[in-house]
Structures are given as C-alpha cells and as structure tokens.
Design a protein around this nucleic acid. Structure first.
Lengths: 166, 166
DNA sequence: CCTCCTCATGAAACAAACTTGCATTTGCTG
DNA sequence: CAGCAAATGCAAGTTTGTTTCATGAGGAGG
C-alpha cells in the first residue's frame, strides 16, 4: 500500500514526467526518458516513487459517457439545513456511495455541496433527486444545471509554477 | 487516428473490461481476461476497438493537485450577457485554453458556464478572475465556490444498466 | 439441407516494455 | 580528504503486449 500521507519533493524531471503521464500514461518509459533526458529505469523509479507518495493517485481509462449510454451530465448545487459534522459526513457518505454521482465537493459559498451527476435519462435524474434530495430531510434546496456541452473535461492539474513546498 | 464518431455496440464483456480499466488501466490484460472469462488477446482486441471508437477517450494518470502545489479547487458559475454563437464559442475557446481551468461545461439554468479551477493560491485565483471575468465584457456575473473537501473526484462513468443503443 | 462467408476466439510464437542488479558518479557530511 | 547517501545508466532477466494462425459459431444464399 502506498504511503498516502508522505510528503515528497518534486524536481523538474518529476514534473515533466507527470506532464506526460497526465496526457497519456501508456507512453513507454523509454519515450518519456527521451523527452526528459533520462534513462527508462530512472523514469520508472520516479514514477514508482510518485505513486507510492500519492502524487499519482490512480491510472485510469477515461470513458465517454455518451458512448456507454449515459449521455446526460448534470451539475447540482445542494444546500443543507444543518451543517453539523454528523449530518455533513452522512451526506458525504451517501453522495460518495452513489455511482451516478461522479464528483462531489464540499464547498463554501451559497451552496454546501456541488455534485456532478451522470445519467442515461432525465427520468433517471428525477428518480435520483427523489432519493438523494427529496428523501433527505437535511437538504434544504438544490439547483440543477444540465450540461449542454462538455467543453473541457478532465482532471489535468496545471504543472507550471510549482512552489518548492507548501 | 481514431474514428471518434463511429458508433459501436458494447456487450457485457466490453462493459466488464471498461469497469476494470476505469479503476486501473495498468491492469494486465491477462488479469482482466481471467476476471471476465476471456483470453488476453480477446481483451486486447476489444480494448483497441473501444479506443478507436472513442469509447475510451484517454488513458491518463490522475495527479493529486495538493501534492504538486495546487491545493485549491474552485467552482465558478459564469453568467454571460449575450449568448450569440460567436461569443459563446469565444468563451469556450478561452476557458479551454486556460490550464487552470480543469473542467468547463456549458449549461442550462441560472448560469451559462460552470468551471472547475485548480490554483496554487487565492492570489492566483484573483489574478485569473481579472483576466477571465473582469477582463471579458460579455461576463455579466460570476459566483465562486471554494472547495473545502474534494469528497469524491473522478471521471468514472456508471456502467450498470446500459441500453442497447440510444 | 448444405455451403460459403464473416466474425470472434484461444493457443502459441514473437516483440516490446517493464523491472532488477550492479557499478559508477555526484554531492554532501564529518 | 574520506566516507556516505542518493540517483543514474547499462545490461540482463522477466513480465506484458501484440501478432499469427487455425478452429468453431452464426447467418445468408443456393
């Protein structure tokens, strides 16, 4: 198991490697090595270290929702009644456990949660609202934004000016 | 180049494979094959077909923003003045071209765009707002939600009940 | 009913990539 | 200046990915 909490110092090589892997993690280490002026084993060791340190959280395939029958992406702002630790944790747990909830953030501002939901039909979304929102007494209000265009999608992190250590 | 527009029929095997790859695309084909009762070459061919069809859009490493000095995630709702095609396309292009904008959706509802922004400091965000929002006459209003907790993050698509074809 | 054709599959051979061991270099510390 | 720790490249070994090929299932047409 990776040591998720460990801090790690990243140099220019590491960032260059991450930059490649964020776009395509199937890139051969040898190719990466050529791009960053390092041997394949060196690249491999750095990748392994970053995986163990949790810098690289996962390696995964990105699936087009529309191609698998889930063409609808919806944003939801959720406002709760009470923000006690227990109730917030319960909400986090429920949202996390729902497969249709692709992303969930606990936020400041005029809402408490922002959800990204992926469903096949609006009927599915309607059913989901009944369960997650109308069925939860702690949900005061929620606002729905249906995505017409997924203009830019990804989890790419900007890697420009990285500070030496927070 | 992959034929991005081509439709493709996915059977149970394909979905099972996708399910694995969404979690970890470094899983050996042989292991996937054992899980879904298929030989490694069969798995390989199916993966290739899905990549060419655009079902699998990308294979990438997920980087922890905090570990690379970008600990702040922010949601922004953007409301524009005019929704002419030209202005909307211009906005899409500008948001897409901004590295700090991790995700951008064009939505219906009380806002027109929803952005997910990743930055190192609030000062960076403030600078970004000047450029993207205050510096754009077509932006009528924007609302900021700062993420306190990234409860659930990913681009995993629910693969349960996939309909035979939209 | 049979044949041809297409398509997907598994086994095996093959190629490529990953991984490890080892000696060397670099930079720091006592 | 000597010794130590960390990182590197090369080369060998191992795993994984890829291709080839023959087989069998399913459908269309004779």
């Amino acid at each position: 198991m990776a040591k998720l909490g460990s801090e790690i110092a990243l140099d220019t090589f590491d960032l260059a490697i991450l930059d490649v892997l964020q776009k395509d993690n199937a890139t051969p280490q040898r190719t990466i090595g050529e791009a960053v002026n390092l041997s394949a084993p060196a690249v491999q060791r750095r990748i392994k270290r970053m995986e163990e340190a949790g810098v690289i959280q996962a390696n995964c395939a990105i699936v087009d929702p529309a191609k698998v029958g889930q063409p609808i992406t919806i944003f939801v702002e959720v406002e709760v009644v009470s923000e006690t630790t227990e109730l917030i944790d319960a909400a986090k747990a429920e949202f996390s456990a729902t497969p249709e909830v692709q992303q969930c953030y606990y936020v400041t501002g005029e809402a408490d949660f922002i959800l990204v939901i992926v469903v096949a039909t609006m009927a599915d979304y309607e059913a989901l609202t009944r369960r997650l929102f109308f069925g939860n007494n702690n949900v005061k209000r929620f606002r729905t934004f249906v995505a017409m265009d997924r203009v830019k999608v990804g989890l790419t992190v900007p890697l420009k000016s990285v500070k030496p250590a927070g």
